[in-house]
Design a protein around this nucleic acid. Structure first.
Lengths: 219, 219
DNA sequence: CACCTTCTGAAACTCGGTATCGTCGGGGTG
DNA sequence: CACCCCGACGATACCGAGTTTCAGAAGGTG
C-alpha cells in the first residue's frame, strides 16, 4: 500500500535527474509510477514535497529532545538535538546526496530547504530564550538568536561537507564545530566554571585589568 | 511611464491588506491599477515581486561596499555594508512595516524574505572567506560562515525590533549588536589580545579538546 | 511618408494545486 | 452469506500563476 509512495519518490528522483526539476511535470511522475495525479497530491501535497520527506518527524524529535533540557544542561541538549538532524541525513546516505545535488541547482528547492532550516533554528531560539531569561543577560533576544543561528550554521557546514564528499569524519567535525560555536559565545552566568580556568595574561598588563578580566569572565 | 508601476504597487498593497495575499488575484490588482495582466508580469515577473522591490539594488550596493574593503578594514566594511540594508528599510518607513506585516502572516512571503536574506549572507561569507584565508585559521569556511550569519542575524534582530515598533534608536542598537557579534567571534590574528584572555573550560571536556580550545583562543 | 523601436493589450496555453464525485475492495457485524 | 461502511483511488472540472505569441499604438528618425 505504501509501495505506491515509494514508486512515486523513485520515479520523481529519476526524472528530475534525467531532465531536471522544472522540466519534469507531475503528470510524467505519476505516469511512470503508474498512479493518478490525485494519488500524488494526496500523498505529498506538492511537487516539492517529494524531495523533502520526514521533515515534520525530525522537527518533532528535535522539539522532544529540547524539551528534556534544563537551563543547566542546555548545551548538551542543543548539541544532541542538532545531532538528530545530522544523523537523519547520514542515515539517508546516497538519497541525501541526490537531494543535495537537486537543491543546489534549483533555486525553488534551495529556498525550500532554507525555510526548513529556519524552522529548526526557530526551535533552538525559542528554547534558548527561555533558558537565557533571568540570567542577567542584557539582550536575551539577540544572544538567543545568535547562538541558535550559530548552532544551525555550524551543523550545516559540517553536513554540507559530508554531502559534497569532502572532509573527514562528520561526527568528529560536528563536535569541533559545536565547540567552536560555544567557545565564541557567552551564554550567561549559568556557564558555571565547573572545570579548569585558563588565564592568559599578556606582558605589561596591569593587575587591575587582569582582575577585571577575571571578574568579567566569571560573571 | 513609471506611474503605472507605482499604481500597481499601491493597488497590490491595498488589496493584500483588505483581503489577504492568497485571496487576492493578479487579475484584481491590474483591474484596480487600470492596466493589463501582461503589463503586470512584465513589470514584476511574479506576484511576490510586487512586495519586494529594489532587492537587486541593495545587493549590488552591498557588493560594492564590500569590494572596497581589505583584510585590515574588513570589520568596518562589513558594518557599513550591513548598514546599507538597515538604512534602506528605515528610509522606506511605513512601507517597510506594511511589508513586514505581510511577510509575518503569509508563509510563502516569509520564505521569500528569508531567501533574500541568505543572498546578503552569501555576499558577506564570500568576502570573509577571502579575508580570512591565509590567516592561519584552522577552519576558514566555518568561521567565515559563522561571522557572516552572525552579522546578518544581529542586523535582523535590530531591524525587526524597529519594524515591530519596539525598542529605541535602531542605529544605536545596531552598533551594539555589531559589537556583540565581533566580541563573540574570533576573526584571526588581527584580534590581538590586548587584554587578558580568560578561558572557562567545561568539566566534561577532554584534554585534547581543552588544548584545542586554548590554541584557538590564542591564535 | 516610410521605417524602426518600444511599450502595451489580448488571447491562448502550460502546469501546479484544489475540490468534487463516483467507484472499488476489504473488513467487521448481524 | 448478506450488508454496510469506510478508506483509498481515479477521473474530471476548475482556479490561478506565469509564459508565449501576436497585433497594434505611440513616438522618434531618415
Amino acid at each position: 500500500m505504501s509501495q505506491a509512495r515509494d514508486r512515486m519518490v523513485e520515479a520523481a528522483f529519476a526524472l528530475f535527474d534525467e531532465q531536471g526539476y522544472d522540466a519534469t511535470t507531475v503528470e510524467q511522475i505519476v505516469e511512470r509510477a503508474g498512479v493518478s495525479r490525485s494519488t500524488f497530491f494526496r500523498a505529498f501535497g506538492s511537487k516539492e514535497d517529494v524531495i523533502f520527506p520526514r521533515h515534520e518527524d525530525v522537527q518533532a524529535r528535535i522539539a522532544a529532545r529540547l524539551a528534556t533540557g534544563t537551563r543547566e544542561t542546555h548545551r548538551v541538549a542543543i548539541v544532541e538535538a542538532s545531532r538528530l538532524v545530522l544523523d537523519q541525513y547520514l542515515g539517508e546516505g546516497e538519497l541525501a546526496r541526490s537531494r543535495y545535488r537537486l537543491t543546489r541547482s534549483v533555486p525553488a528547492l534551495r529556498d525550500r530547504e532554507v525555510a526548513s532550516m529556519i524552522g529548526y533554528q526557530r526551535l533552538f531560539r525559542e528554547r534558548l530564550r527561555e533558558w537565557l531569561a533571568g540570567t542577567g543577560d542584557a539582550d536575551v533576544d539577540l544572544h538567543a538568536e545568535l547562538l541558535a543561528v550559530g548552532v544551525v550554521t555550524a551543523h550545516n557546514v559540517v553536513l554540507r561537507r559530508w554531502l559534497r564528499g569532502v572532509g573527514g569524519d562528520p561526527l568528529a567535525e560536528f563536535e569541533e564545530a559545536m565547540a567552536a560555536v560555544f567557545a565564541t559565545t557567552r551564554t550567561g552566568p549559568h556557564d558555571e566554571p565547573d572545570g579548569a580556568t585558563v588565564l592568559v595574561v599578556p606582558s605589561g598588563m596591569s593587575p587591575a585589568a587582569t582582575a577585571a578580566a577575571v571578574r568579567d569572565a566569571l560573571r
